[in-house]
Design a protein around this nucleic acid. Structure first.
Length: 474
DNA sequence: CCTGGAGTTGTCCTA
DNA sequence: TTAGGACAACTCCAG
């Protein structure tokens, strides 16, 4: 093997699949070390919340995009599978690396693993350092005056805006050194990230994974959606949200670049509303860091005694596959199944339906979302589900039960979103699409076997409120 | 330590 | 048809 002309540093890519604004990569370059881009497939190290199938499908394409970007610059991605620490140590040895740099991930299991890896690498005599690559604020950076973690969003975000100091923007390097193959490398295709059979084909009409796709999504948002964002974001029948969530999850774009490009565009009040959504992402990571059990357990222990419905696989299955007979719910669940994504307003509606009308534990919903969303993110998922269920930090009050018919009439007034995802209802007039059971015999005849609601909305709402009331007495 | 204002995204009933 | 209050207190957080 030819020795490299300059000492090298491993740049360990994880959920930071980009070349711009990449602190770990910049650190290597700044130290005068030749970066060796490394990716290690090690799902067994991620505990109970290893990436789901949709997430893997996205990751495959995002890694391929990153590899292409690297090749354009003379480098490439070195892919491995197996134990992360052992791989880093052996790749460092075979490339003569002096250092290993990476950007932090904040999931509890990963955080623990990485702390151990850093210690071990240092004991091997390597420089090992982690950087912030994914957040505007590290989870420990903001605290209340009393020195506690925030439990309420608004004061958290106020403190964030006060402390606002995002990093400057860094272009991607023009050129990167070429490396010889490293022993133990495998092909990206060998990782098994792509589904078999290829049920993900329907995803890619909607998405372009990778740094370029992220930049395009941001540009499209700024050009044509930002100016009506505060209203438009609630309309699943229009594509007026940013659709940046998977790009942000995989670190194909840095949040501070999103914020910076936003700064140069759009009405200030619309910008602020969107920025607040980035704020929720920050808040979710803050909460997960300080309360690491919240992906699995109620944040509010009062709910530990709550009487969820008896497990019913058929009901859960009907929800998962969009066969509940409640049109807006089924539309959302089918959109998720078909595209790996669901509009945020509809996420709230289907989550409320699962946890309140079906009274199924939020954990089952969180698990399904984790496995099926291309933007599956432990922090956001835990916060969102506990928020809807009423068990979480700064959560919705328990008596807030979404009425899926009213929600559909309000946010999908013509029933266009429903018609797109529930073809059985296309033959009905708009108003009947929201609640086909009210359409009478003629209407029902046109619904082509679409099921009757699996639960009575009014009755189940009252049952949920009663269950909550029983909790109060304890 | 005390005080007071505030808290992402709703729904239903009543007047 | 529409507007207002109830729903349930509780806890967070700043001053």
């Amino acid at each position: 093997m030819t020795p490299s002309p300059t000492p090298t540093a491993l740049v360990w890519f994880r959920d930071d699949l980009r070349l711009r604004d990449h602190p770990a990569l910049q650190a290597a370059l700044k130290a005068g070390l030749a970066p060796v881009p490394v990716y290690i497939h090690a799902p067994h190290e991620e505990g109970a919340w290893a990436p789901g199938a949709a997430s893997d499908a996205w990751r495959h394409r995002s890694l391929a995009a990153l590899d292409a970007e690297l090749r354009q610059r003379g480098s490439r991605l070195h892919v491995f599978a197996g134990d992360s620490l052992a791989t880093l140590a052996s790749v460092a040895a075979s490339t003569g690396a002096a250092a290993v740099f990476w950007n932090r991930r904040h999931e509890p299991a990963i955080d623990q693993r990485d702390t151990r890896i850093r210690r071990e690498l240092r004991q091997l005599g390597l420089r090992a350092e982690a950087f912030n690559g994914s957040l505007l604020f590290e989870p420990w950076q903001l605290e209340t005056r009393a020195g506690d973690p925030f439990r309420v969003f608004t004061p958290f975000w106020k403190a964030a805006l006060q402390a606002w100091n995002p990093p400057g923007l860094q272009p991607a390097p023009d050129h990167l050194p070429t490396m010889d193959p490293v022993p133990g490398e495998v092909a990206l295709d060998a990782l098994g990230l792509q589904p078999v059979p290829r049920w993900d084909n329907t995803f890619w009409d909607e998405w372009i994974p990778g740094e370029q796709g992220a930049a395009l999504a941001l540009q499209a948002f700024i050009d044509s959606k930002l100016h009506t964002y505060s209203e438009g974001r609630d309309r699943p029948d229009r594509a007026l949200t940013s659709r940046l969530s998977p790009h942000l999850h995989f670190g194909e774009i840095a949040p501070w670049r999103v914020a910076a490009e936003l700064d140069a565009a759009g009405p200030p009040d619309e910008r602020a509303v969107f920025l607040r959504q980035l704020g929720w992402r920050e808040f979710a990571h803050h909460v997960l860091h300080h309360f690491p059990h919240t992906p699995d357990d109620n944040f509010n222990p009062r709910f530990d005694d709550f009487q969820w419905a008896q497990p019913d696989a058929a009901l859960l299955r009907a929800w998962q596959r969009g066969n509940t007979g409640v049109p807006i719910v089924d539309a959302g669940m089918r959109e998720l199944w078909t595209t790996g994504w669901m509009h945020n307003r509809v996420r709230m509606i289907v989550a409320s339906f699962l946890t309140k009308n079906l009274r199924i534990h939020w954990r089952h919903g969180a698990r399904w979302f984790h496995d099926t969303l291309v933007d599956a993110d432990l922090a956001n998922n835990a916060l969102g589900w506990q928020w809807v269920a009423g068990t979480g930090v700064d959560a919705a009050p328990y008596f807030r039960v979404f009425n899926p018919v009213l929600q559909a009439r309000k946010f999908d007034p013509q029933g266009e979103y429903i018609a797109r995802w529930v073809p059985e209802l296309r033959g009905l007039p708009a108003r009947a699409r929201h609640a086909p059971w009210e359409a009478g015999a003629a209407g029902l005849a046109a619904t082509q076997g679409y099921p009757h609601p699996i639960v009575d909305l009014g009755e189940s709402r009252n049952d949920a409120l009663a269950a909550f009331a029983r909790l109060k007495g304890r």
